Amino acid sequence: MKKAILLIVSIFILNTVVSAQATTFRFEGDAIFQSSILDAAAFGVMPNTTIRFSSELIFDNSQTSADAVTTFSNELGDTAAQFAYESFTFNIGNVSYTHSGPAGFGGGFGFSNTVDIIDRVTNEPGRNADRITVVGINEVAVNPTLQIDTSGFFVRGILPFDTFSGSDASVFNQSQFNALSFGGSIIFSIFDDAGNIIARDDGLLRGLRLENVSIVSVTSAVPEPATWLMMIFGFGLSGLALKRRRRFAV
């Protein structure tokens, strides 16, 4: 009986350790600075300039709807799920910052720090495309004069619906993301030395648009040393239990 319990515990440890590993998705794309000199200068570039940027999302896309922060469905069969990620990092001009922390309500933007999957099965006017959103909404103070308010990638199907099926996190993958129509933006605030806001993105003339973004690489997580120790411990327990079982069988 004790051997059976040890075997079950060791298998549980192995499954928990392996399944908890996240994947790193690396993006590249164009950051388009519009007419504001203040906005461009905050990132160390000239106004009316397009530069390349990179981004990195650490996210466990093996999650199912049971792991979601929240889920939604309607009587028509549309489903949606929001999943927490570990971190969402941007490198633009001379600025680098990271959205992280637990997923939670982000005011008028819904949930913050989530990957959102929306699977539509109905051709409803204005809302008839499958969609994936990666958003960071918690405010990030880059330096005393620059605060990132929100960052996001928004991709959706070109066809009316049924671009993909289901709302599990596995929908978020390189081929699926790169096949969808892209949109994205970064909203930020600029302060003077006294801490007063002197510029804020209005989503029109000001701000930063993201275009031509794609996932350029995907790297599965390598277990950390502590994880390896737990795995070795689990294998050891399994081996010990099986060895003793064979001994008594003889």
Rank of each mutant, 00 (worst) to 15 (best):
S36A: 12
V18F: 00
T227D: 01
G126R: 09
S220P: 05
Q63H: 10
A66I: 03
M230Y: 03
G166E: 07
N123S: 15
I5Q: 13
D119A: 05
R206C: 02
R244P: 10
W228N: 12
D193K: 00
A40W: 07
F248P: 01
R206V: 03
I186K: 09
L210D: 07
A141L: 10
V140A: 00
F59I: 12
D202T: 00
V17N: 00
I58F: 00
S55T: 07
Q174F: 01
K2A: 15
Y85N: 05
F235M: 15
I8F: 15
N123R: 08
S96V: 08
I118E: 11
A221V: 00
A249P: 13
A194F: 08
T150D: 06
R156Q: 11
D67A: 14
T50L: 01
A221E: 12
F83N: 03
R131T: 14
S87D: 06
N212M: 01
T219R: 13
S185D: 07
E211V: 14
V135D: 11
V115E: 08
L38F: 10
N212S: 13
T16I: 14
A129V: 13
L204I: 11
T122H: 12
A42T: 06
I232T: 12
V218H: 04
I51F: 06
S62T: 11
I197M: 09
N178Q: 09
S62P: 06
L6K: 10
F33V: 08
I132P: 02
P102Y: 10
D192T: 08
M1D: 13
E56G: 05
F105Q: 14
S151C: 02
S62Y: 09
V45E: 01
T24W: 02
G29R: 06
T114L: 03
F88Y: 13
G152C: 08
L180T: 07
G104T: 13
P125K: 03
F88T: 08
T145E: 03
L204R: 15
I197E: 04
I117V: 13
L180A: 12
I187R: 08
V142I: 05
A169N: 00
N128V: 08
F248Q: 03
I187K: 02
S73R: 12
L229R: 08
G126F: 04
I190N: 00
N48Y: 09
T70K: 04
I117R: 06
D202I: 04
A199M: 09
A80R: 04
F164C: 00
N178A: 03
K2R: 15
V95P: 08
S35P: 05
F88I: 14
K3N: 13
Q34R: 15
E56F: 12
I148E: 01
L76E: 11
S10F: 06
V250D: 15
R200S: 05
I187Y: 09
G203D: 02
G108Q: 06
E211P: 04
T49P: 06
D202R: 11
I8R: 14
